[in-house]
């Protein structure tokens, strides 16, 4: 490592903005640590609401990732492996939530899945199911925002994977579904995992769509980002404490993955 580093001279024109960029990303986090009410922290974190919000955040983000996997992987396969009229359009629609402000997504979800929404009304009358203001509603909102990350990642992995392996499986008697399950899926596993991590991270930080579609109620729909936002209204100290918890969880998760799927040199 070190001999290579000494061989590569780094031009100042690159080094300076690079260091600035690093400071720009790291300083706010440092600020959070400096301003943290360390002494009052144990008391702040003792409140049941904090842990309730954290538990809700983790379970909802995980459920949303599961939903994204179940629906997103087949969708990615469809986009990568089949030709149909309007495929480009479908692809654009799938990626739309990436650029759409999450609040807009929340509004849209409310209009479709809300009590008076096109689908929501039917869900209500047929199954007595209402999504807004419920924990499943949080999962729906998070999955809506997070799924495109997974689809894009898996589609990329599928395009990079050699489709001839599927042909080889077919000549050995594997149906297309078996070939997908036993050959393609293991081949693109790193891409699926990377997509799942991205989706999970996005779901954990989701705010706009959640508060718009699922509302805000402690223990039911108030995830960590919502708790932070509302605490900021009148109790910045509590907001900082909550932010620290969220930061610690994020760092723990990234460390847990040990950069295996997130390092640029990792598998495609």
């Amino acid at each position: 490592m070190s001999p290579r580093a000494s061989r590569n001279r780094v031009p100042v024109a690159l080094l300076l903005p690079a260091l600035l960029g690093l400071a720009f990303l790291v300083l706010p986090l440092v600020g959070l640590l400096i301003r943290a009410p360390w002494r009052a922290l144990p008391q702040q974190l003792a409140s049941a609401e904090v842990w309730e919000a954290l538990r809700l955040s983790l379970s909802c983000a995980t459920s949303a990732t599961a939903v994204a996997l179940v629906l997103g992987v087949p969708l990615a396969w469809l986009l990568a492996r089949t030709e149909f009229p309007g495929r480009r359009l479908v692809r654009a629609l799938v990626t739309l939530p990436l650029v759409l402000p999450p609040v807009v997504g929340g509004v849209a979800l409310l209009l479709v899945l809300g009590r008076n929404g096109v689908v929501g009304r039917w869900l209500d009358s047929a199954f007595g199911l209402t999504l807004p203001f419920t924990t499943p509603g949080v999962v729906v909102a998070e999955a809506f925002v997070a799924m495109p990350f997974l689809v894009i990642s898996v589609e990329g992995a599928l395009r990079a994977a050699d489709p001839r392996y599927e042909e080889a499986a077919a000549t050995l008697g594997a149906s297309p579904l078996t070939a997908f399950r036993r050959v393609t899926l293991p081949l693109i596993a790193p891409g699926v995992a990377a997509g799942a991590v991205l989706a999970w991270a996005r779901a954990l930080g989701e705010f706009g769509a959640t508060i718009t579609f699922a509302g805000n109620f402690p223990g039911r729909t108030q995830t960590m980002p919502l708790a932070v936002y509302l605490a900021m209204e009148n109790d910045p100290q509590a907001a900082i404490a909550l932010s620290l918890v969220l930061l610690a969880v994020s760092v723990a998760v990234l460390a847990g993955l040990r950069g295996r799927w997130l390092s640029p040199g990792g598998q495609a």
Binding site: L110, L111, G114, R115, N116, P132, F133, I211, T212, A214, G215, N216, F217, P218, T221, Q222, Y229, L230, E233
Partner: peptide, 21 residues
């Protein structure tokens, strides 16, 4: 027990307007 605690008065009103509450 409300179903939601909205972050401002306008969004609370919007939920009524949409018939969600």
């Amino acid at each position: 027990t409300p179903v939601t605690q909205e972050q401002d008065v306008k969004s609370a009103l919007t939920k009524v307007e949409l018939g969600e509450v």
